[in-house]
Computed example of a mutant assay.
Amino acid sequence: MPDADRVPVAQLSRFMAAALRKLGLPEGDASLVAQLMAEAEAQGSDGHGAIRLAPYARRIRAGGYNLKPDIRVVQEKPAMALLDGDNGFGHLVMHKAAQIAIEKAKQCGVAWVGARLSNHAGPASIYARMPLAHDMVGLYFAVGNANHLPPWGGLDMLLSTNPVAVAVPAGEEPPVVLDMATTVAAYGKVKAKAQRGEQMPEGWMIDRTGQPLTDPKRAAEGFLLPIGGYKGYGLALVIGLLAGTLNGAAMGRDVLDFNQDFRTTTNTGQAICVIDPAAFGDVTGFKARVDQVIRDMRGAERMPGVDRIWLPGEQSHEKRLRSERGGLVLPAALREQLDALGAELGLAPLGQH
């Protein structure tokens, strides 16, 4: 697209930071949240990036966030910690959780940090990837912020998309980064489809009679489908128990639909686990072996019509590089939404930041 239609990642981050400051976040917190949101947009996680700014603003205005939280450790042992997020932005809570887990893993070889009283924090891979800068493995788990999945064979919405992400460092190759919801599609993707006026593919959602649901604007009439049938339901359940129940956070009937209720505390639960490969041996050798596995996968014989075998995270990695070089292409409806919010807050349009 023409350069005029592209938005540099840093420009989007500055705009969102300015909006969050106007809404009452302290300057450092606003900058960090905006940076992580822009990073989500850059890697193609459009359901968790700039599209979330307006709902966050609505929640702030309704008093649903603590804008100056005391994010603190309330339980701790050498290889674990439990954070109380004090109803702050989930990005702030999980950024701190990742930092604590990395430092503990340096000492213990592995560390697990859970959080309660957090909030939506963006895509799971953002936090799983943080340990990569230290040549460590990151795993992230979360309870989603609205239930869109019934137990297998049921109709009561008792589970969310409950995502999991795993990031494994490599040597010369891009890291392996798996980021997935336990449903066929994350609900953020449904929102993005609705905003763009697009239909969902069959297989994302069904209505309460079991028929395919493809209009994202009718999403409330049905529910998301789990990956792998009953296996995805089971995975969503155990992730919810580890990220929610274990931390004293919301799970099951206690999960609040933050798409409908902008005032009540969500008590979102998340967890991050960090593994230091140095505890298992030579890190350089480990990364070289990961490289070989990647090349074996990519070089496998392909089925007819398949041009390339992708590794988890490769396409997001390439999108991130393209975004950093050439900027972001934001849907017209999203740019209008951002500029409208900016105007409400007395900010210049996005293109002038």
Rank of each mutant, 00 (worst) to 15 (best):
V110K: 02
A42L: 03
E103P: 02
V190K: 03
Q35C: 07
V274K: 07
L334V: 10
S160E: 02
K106P: 00
A348M: 08
G327A: 06
T266E: 08
A101K: 05
P277I: 14
Q270E: 10
V306S: 04
K191D: 12
K189H: 04
P131A: 13
H134L: 07
Q43R: 14
D179A: 00
P78N: 05
K22D: 10
G63P: 12
E41Y: 02
D3H: 01
V176T: 09
E344T: 11
I102M: 14
I275H: 09
L224M: 13
S31L: 10
Y140F: 15
A165H: 03
Q211N: 15
Q11K: 08
A250M: 01
M297N: 04
I309P: 01
F258Y: 01
M37S: 05
G28P: 02
M136H: 12
A54D: 12
V33H: 06
R320S: 11
K231E: 12
A50W: 05
D46L: 02
V306L: 13
G342C: 10
I239R: 02
L242T: 00
K217V: 08
P26L: 11
T183I: 05
E41G: 03
A271T: 05
T183F: 03
H48I: 01
I227M: 11
G49R: 05
G171D: 14
D46Y: 04
A10D: 13
V93K: 06
Q11H: 01
E198N: 09
P349G: 05
L330W: 09
S45Q: 02
Q75A: 12
E76C: 01
L82I: 07
N247G: 00
L341G: 08
T214C: 13
R295E: 15
D339S: 06
A348Y: 02
L242K: 00
P78Y: 06
H120Q: 09
A124F: 02
L117Y: 03
G281V: 14
D257Q: 02
K287P: 10
E76T: 04
L347R: 09
V110Q: 07
R52C: 06
A30M: 08
A10T: 07
F258T: 09
M37E: 01
K96P: 01
V283L: 11
K231S: 04
M200W: 05
Y230I: 12
Q75V: 02
V255W: 01
G153T: 13
R52L: 13
L328D: 10
D291G: 05
A19P: 11
Q352D: 14
P8H: 04
V293M: 14
Q260M: 10
D84G: 03
R58A: 15
Y140N: 00
A186S: 13
M136N: 11
P78F: 07
L224H: 07
H317Y: 15
E173T: 13
A124T: 03
R58G: 14
R58W: 05
P163F: 06
